[in-house]
Amino acid sequence: MKYALVTGGSRGIGRAIALQLAKELQYNILLNFNKNHKAAEETKLLIEANGVNCHILQFDVGKAEATTAAFENWKKANPEAIIEVIVNNAGITRDGLFMWMKPEDWNTVIDTSLNGFYNVTQPLLKDMLRKRYGRIINIVSLSGLKGNAGQVNYSAAKGGLIAATKALAQEIGKRKVTVNAVAPGFINSEMTEDFDQNEFKKLIPLKRFGEAEEVANLVSFLASKKASYITGEVININGGLYS
């Protein structure tokens, strides 16, 4: 059985991505979450309404041992399962001016977005290379491309992930495994619910925030066979804000 793994998949953009991969590409879903068990169970029901299986895995992508153990246990229980798609979506913000930033606010953000990419992708990559097929899609951010005041930690994490995307794509392209990044701008989600939309909309040529489903549509395309000649790319989805 073929699976797509979505980290941070219980809510927001991650939930929309998992649903779209199930609906459009008929992938069984391996849904990772860290804390919100109720939201994960709700998402599982929505996914399975598309006629596919959904397995929930609870672990913090920033913790290497817990991540590896979760995958090993799942593989033992599902020896026939193949993970063809990895969507590294898990991420957190701990915003604040750099001069006042506490070490834990720096480390937690780096651990989740950047080290999480390593912890999740590296142990699963060997199977993709053996199968000579795979899709790795990293959810980055406008902050990782242009930087954002008050988000030095988040910008550093996402900027590092962008560079890792480009480098890994060069390493493994010959095995027909593609690696791309999707960089959302302002998307309606819990992460942006406290933003002053009227002020930010003035900066956006399309004059609105994006929807999680719009990001999910792009990810689904990159996860499909239609995108077989696209790798090492960072695709912006931001209403023209940074183009």
Rank of each mutant, 00 (worst) to 15 (best):
L206R: 12
A39Y: 05
F59M: 02
E84G: 15
R130H: 15
T231Y: 05
G239E: 03
A157H: 06
D111Y: 09
E48V: 07
T165V: 06
W74Q: 07
G12W: 03
E48H: 06
A212I: 03
E80F: 11
E24V: 14
R130M: 13
I110Q: 02
R94P: 07
F209S: 01
K35A: 14
F186C: 00
G96S: 11
K126E: 14
A22N: 03
K226Y: 08
T93C: 10
G62V: 05
E193Q: 13
E211H: 08
V215H: 00
L168T: 02
R175Y: 13
G96W: 11
E211M: 09
K201P: 03
A64H: 14
T108P: 09
I162T: 06
E72G: 12
F195W: 11
H37N: 14
G62E: 04
N50C: 13
A149S: 13
S189A: 10
Q170N: 14
P123F: 07
F200R: 08
S113N: 14
I204S: 02
W100R: 15
E104M: 12
A156I: 04
L31K: 01
S143E: 09
F209H: 02
T121W: 03
E211S: 06
I235D: 05
E80G: 14
E48G: 05
Y27W: 11
N34L: 11
G240P: 06
L206F: 15
R15L: 06
Y3W: 13
K158Y: 02
A181N: 04
I230C: 02
M1R: 14
E214I: 08
I162Q: 01
V152L: 11
V52G: 01
Q151M: 06
V219T: 00
I110V: 12
A70K: 09
A77V: 10
Y242D: 13
I139R: 00
L168P: 01
A212P: 01
I204C: 07
L30W: 03
G134N: 09
G239L: 07
G62R: 04
A164D: 05
E213T: 08
L57Q: 10
K176Y: 15
I172S: 01
Q197T: 12
L25F: 06
E211T: 07
G232D: 08
N36Q: 12
A183G: 03
A18N: 04
